[in-house]
Amino acid sequence: MNMAQEKVHKTLSYRFLLIVLAALFFLTALTVGASTVNLGTLNVWVALLIAAAKASLVLLFFMHLKYEDMVLKISFLATIGFLAIIIGFIFLDIAFR
């Protein structure tokens, strides 16, 4: 069982996890800062971009997705892909109503 675990589990150092946390705090400050600058409709896109960056950090390192095998990586991306399709088609409907 230990062998199998070593294959699918990677141990991340506290130091590395702390660096990820620091990056998440920095991006939080950045998104608050960005919300004080009026960019019109661009604001929501900037906020979503920063949120996506934060989500990627959590997924890749806190949730170890970076160290998982292809089954999890592809199935995760497929989920996001389907969500994008749903959002895309709903907005096609809203935009041309």
């Binding site: 919300s35 604001n43 929501v44 979503l48 920063i50 959590v58 949730m63």
Partner: peptide, 23 residues
Amino acid sequence: AGLYWHLVDLIWIFVFPLFYLII
């Protein structure tokens, strides 16, 4: 359990800017 907890964090990462920071 940890994965679930991280997901809750993930959702909040999107809730925060969309509700609290919208200008």
